[in-house]
Design a protein around this nucleic acid. Structure first.
Length: 263
DNA sequence: AACCGCTGCAACCGCCAATAG
DNA sequence: CCTATTGGCGGTTGCAGCGGT
């Protein structure tokens, strides 16, 4: 489509474009008759003027009996997002975790629906981040913190806040954040080392963060985040404090400031 | 009704690794 | 070991359908 053809036979061009019902029937017939065979033989056996790659793609992405069609379920979306964060654009590997889904389908869904959803969430997050920073300086925050403290979840709330402000890949290091939070929350010990060592995963540390760790020789150089066995039940609470759940966080802030509305 | 822009998706392309000869 | 072939993967394109004006 719009590019030079990749396949020719001795008579000239192979057929391109959308597959017809008749072509689908011929291709399916080959698999019913012979089972899996060499893709290079398929067009000839099926009597199709298509290149082997085209046949393979049509079979894998559309005709294969176990192909699941339709939109992704919520759980499937979560799996895709989670795996993409770990694997990147390894669509075939991601698809292998979703029975009936193809790499092409996952790729399409990611490039259309999911990426937009995440961009929207990022916008939400940036708005939240700006709000959070200005919020730090208000007296009202101290009151809200006191409420959280009395409910016994102040550490979690502050850790979330620190992590929010520490997710700064685009804005560079800011070792003043711990100071800012310590000033705001005098009841908690949040020096730079603790912020870096206990909150930031190793992969998110900047050079400045590494220097902070070096300056505290008695401390391990690996993050508590990285030490957690994520499969253990005990880890879920810890990780929930570190891997911020945006929906919960936004809900939390919505409760704090009812007038604050998200984009 | 006609046009236009947007979206979703099927299909193509080039590249690369594995395998065969 | 070298070369050709094959299969698989990820990026990209173009079309069809839909909604808004």
């Amino acid at each position: 489509m719009g590019r030079k053809p990749c396949c020719k036979n001795k008579f000239g061009m192979m057929k391109k474009g959308s597959w017809t019902i008749e072509e689908d029937r011929k291709l399916t017939g080959i698999f019913l008759k012979y089972g899996q065979c060499r893709w290079s033989d398929v067009p000839k056996l099926a009597g199709l003027w298509r290149c082997p790659k085209s046949c393979r793609l049509r079979w894998i992405n559309y005709l294969r009996p176990d192909v699941k069609r339709g939109p992704l379920s919520e759980s499937e979306e979560r799996v895709v997002i989670s795996l993409h964060s770990k694997l990147g654009n390894k669509w075939s590997q991601i698809a292998s975790h979703l029975p009936g889904r193809t790499d092409n389908e996952i790729k399409n869904i990611w490039n259309t629906t999911l990426r937009k959803k995440l961009i929207r969430k990022e916008i939400d997050y940036q708005a939240q981040k700006s709000f959070s920073i200005s919020f730090c300086s208000s007296d009202k925050k101290k009151d809200e913190f006191a409420d959280h403290q009395s409910e016994g979840n102040s550490q979690s709330w502050v850790t979330s806040s620190v992590h929010t402000n520490s997710s700064r890949s685009s804005s560079g290091g800011d070792s003043g954040l711990s100071h800012e939070f310590q000033m705001e929350f005098p009841g908690l010990d949040f020096d730079d080392h603790r912020v870096v060592n206990h909150v930031l995963p190793t992969s998110k540390r900047s050079d400045d963060d590494q220097e902070i760790l070096k300056s505290s020789p008695n401390q391990s150089n690996s993050s508590e985040y990285d030490k957690v066995d994520r499969n253990s039940p005990e880890s879920s609470q810890y990780l929930s404090n570190v891997d911020i759940d945006w929906d919960s966080f936004i809900d939390e802030l919505d409760q704090l400031i009812p007038k604050f509305s998200l984009i």
